[in-house]
Design a protein around this nucleic acid. Structure first.
Lengths: 204, 204
DNA sequence: TTATATCATTGCACAATGGGCAAAAATTCA
DNA sequence: TGAATTTTTGCCCATTGTGCAATGATATAA
């Protein structure tokens, strides 16, 4: 599953450097405050190389949400999952692990940017969708054949559907890394997640 | 909820004409077989007007999935929904109504295109996401305060998560408008939907 | 090691695109 | 009717996307 060759690692490193530079610039100046040349200048690559990795600056900005650390942590988690654990429980663990304070901060910044610059939204959705597909495929792999087709899609869709509104503040929840003053009277992320999984386990 | 003024109807009409032209061209020549000038020439508008409605041709092509007929039919449906019907049942009716043979055909064509031309994918996801949000908001409106925050997001996310894999064939289901020879041995769309809602009602 | 193949990066050139601006045409409202 | 609002359009130009070919770095095989 890992890309291990030096060549692939370098390729991903440049993609990452470009995405980071794009994300920084978007936070500093807004999406219309810089051009692709600014990105490649900051990251130290050519404009042509940028086009080899991303089709536009929106895509590069959204790619900042892809965290390698999380990917590797997820792989460690997967290795430690007991056989025959129900998909609901796997997904529960996966969510608690993947939604770190850091990644939630990046996602919230991206969603905030996408409110000001709507052209960003499709690319953010695409990143989140990729994450949802990865989760669904993990569930499917770990419960091979024990559930009908669609079961894992249903589960993954539900959880991601419930997490997304936390990012734009349409549901008031105290996220990891936020102080209690930021969202007075809000339930915590863990409480919210437990409630959502309660519905999944017991039915609607 | 309706836009009723003549001005708004005309605006949507041009957006629609542009999207239809873009969609036709994409089917005929592939996404790289035409330029924005081809779209506006076919639809009878100026290039500048295109930019007033869409940010790129990918966005226009994906917009072909937005059907006005369905929107109006959905509004009729909403008017006929009994008060206090549980959100699960509302969503079930909504899915059966919105996923007509025509719209499913368009969606399948778009998803098929997005396999060949990955730059299209974020914009298709965006359209589907808009539909998901509309469904969630409908559920939320019709069950004001009777369920905790997140409940309707969870439900809508689950159902859309289960429907999406039908569009790219990763789950083999006989969709409305398809003949039985196309997917031998597959369960029907109605059977699939009933099974998915069974999990939602009874729990995972 | 060396030789060869594969792939990433870069520069160049040019068609295609996005968007500010202002004028013209259409619609709305008083 | 006339004024206000909004859409469409043309003009213009900075920005962008991409095919092609060359160079440099990594991988593979002997």
């Amino acid at each position: 599953m890992n890309k291990q060759s030096l060549r692939d690692m370098k390729r991903e490193a440049t993609a990452h450097a470009l995405a980071d530079a794009a994300f920084e610039l978007a936070l500093e100046r807004g999406l219309d405050g810089f051009v692709v040349d600014d990105i490649v200048q900051r990251a130290g690559y050519s404009r042509r190389t940028f086009a080899n990795h991303y089709s536009c600056k929106e895509e590069a900005v959204a790619a900042a949400a892809v965290s390698y650390k999380n990917v590797h942590e997820a792989e460690d988690l997967i290795a430690g999952i007991p056989e025959n654990l129900p998909p609901v429980d796997i997904l529960y663990q996966l969510m608690k692990m993947q939604l770190s304070a850091e990644i939630l901060w990046i996602l919230r910044e991206l969603v905030s940017l996408s409110k000001r610059y709507p052209t960003l939204e499709p690319y953010i959705l695409n990143v989140l969708r990729s994450s949802q597909i990865a989760a669904q495929e993990l569930l499917s792999d770990l419960s091979r054949g024990r559930y009908p087709e669609g079961y894992t899609h249903l589960l993954a869709g539900a959880v991601y559907g419930a997490v997304l509104p936390l990012l734009d503040g349409s549901i008031n929840v105290l996220l990891p890394g936020q102080s209690a003053e930021e969202s007075p009277g809000a339930m915590t992320f863990d409480q919210y997640l437990d409630m959502m999984f309660g519905y999944l386990r017991k039915g609607f």
